[in-house]
């Protein structure tokens, strides 16, 4: 392509971003923009899929039929969200199969939160309330992200996600109205999930390598630290309302800023979990690889059957 032509295309692309006109699959886009989107959307899709594992762990042990039906519906939604996102990613010309293989080899990441175990029923409350709550904080601004298929997938996901957070908070409310043991179980779940939930927003702005470019491209609309602050400000009163204590001695309302101040995140732990050394990294990947390998014959058989039917119809 001629240099002048490329400059024109790039100018037209930037003009669209400036005017908040969405970029669509067949439009010209810079390679780096495409790569950033593939990385972000696939990471997001993998998170939805791996995110089914910690909750799937409790489906057979839900305390009653209502909770079981709800949890089943929630986990099914996560599978659906993964599908919307993989389908958005494929519009960028990257294959789903390749993307899944990249997750299995560790080349592609998923949210570090899913590398923590879900030890008690209260964890289903903490995960729905905090993990889905943090995800919503991240995802609502993504409904206005500059790439059309990603934005449209996020609109669908956000519509479905609010039930996830409410059902989790409801579990916490119910436990907090229960026995001393049940209250302790809820508090313990909060203690274990609070800090990992804050880590979901990623490294601090000073450390984040992708943030500025992604904001210029209008892929991201807020920085990691802005979103994290919004999450803390929203969650603290919710905890207080039902008698839970946020496990952070440095947490206090800052009148001047109009926000909560909170303690330093253990970035070393974050680094360890992201780089594969969290409590469940190996287990999660092993479960995904097993699902892919053991389901392979089914997918092959379905394809062979479809081809046979097609051949029969043609003859």
């Amino acid at each position: 392509m001629k240099e002048q032509n490329l400059a024109d295309l790039e100018a037209a692309f930037n003009e669209k971003l400036k005017q908040d006109i969405r970029i669509e699959p067949k439009d010209w886009m810079p390679d780096a923009y495409r790569k950033t989107l593939i990385r972000q959307i696939s990471q997001h899709a993998h998170s939805e899929i791996v995110g089914m594992l910690p909750e799937g762990n409790w489906i057979t042990r839900a305390p009653n039929l209502r909770r079981k039906a709800v949890l089943l519906a929630k986990v099914q939604d996560e599978a659906g969200h993964g599908q919307y996102l993989y389908s958005a990613m494929e519009t960028l010309g990257f294959s789903r199969e390749q993307s899944i293989d990249d997750m299995h080899t560790g080349k592609a990441k998923y949210s570090s939160i899913f590398n923590y175990p879900t030890l008690t029923w209260a964890d289903m409350g903490a995960v729905g309330w905090l993990v889905d709550g943090a995800a919503i904080m991240n995802q609502v601004p993504l409904c206005r992200t500059s790439y059309g298929p990603y934005a449209r997938a996020m609109v669908r996901i956000c519509k479905e996600e609010s039930f996830h957070q409410r059902q989790g908070y409801e579990i916490m409310c119910t436990l907090m109205k229960g026995s001393e043991d049940q209250k302790a179980m809820a508090q313990d779940a909060l203690n274990r999930f609070w800090w990992p939930a804050l880590m979901m927003f990623g490294p601090s702005d000073a450390e984040s390598t992708h943030t500025q470019q992604s904001i210029d491209w209008k892929i991201k609309r807020h920085t990691n630290d802005e979103l994290r602050q919004m999450f803390v400000d929203a969650s603290v009163p919710q905890a207080q309302l039902i008698g839970l204590t946020i496990p952070d001695p440095d947490l206090k309302w800052n009148e001047e800023r109009g926000h909560y101040d909170f303690g330093e995140i253990d970035w070393e732990e974050f680094k360890q979990v992201v780089s594969g050394n969290g409590p469940c990294n190996a287990e999660r990947i092993a479960a995904r690889v097993k699902a892919k390998e053991e389901g392979m014959w089914v997918r092959e058989a379905a394809m062979a059957y479809a081809e046979k039917k097609k051949a029969k119809k043609a003859s």
């Binding site: 519906a73 958005a88 394809m303």
Partner: peptide, 22 residues
């Protein structure tokens, strides 16, 4: 949106599960 399926019938069923849960 889009989905993967071996044939048209399966595509309708998968689309039902993925795009019409509500």
């Amino acid at each position: 949106g889009s989905i993967h399926a071996a044939d048209a019938e399966m595509a309708v069923e998968n689309a039902r599960d993925v795009y019409t849960r509500r």
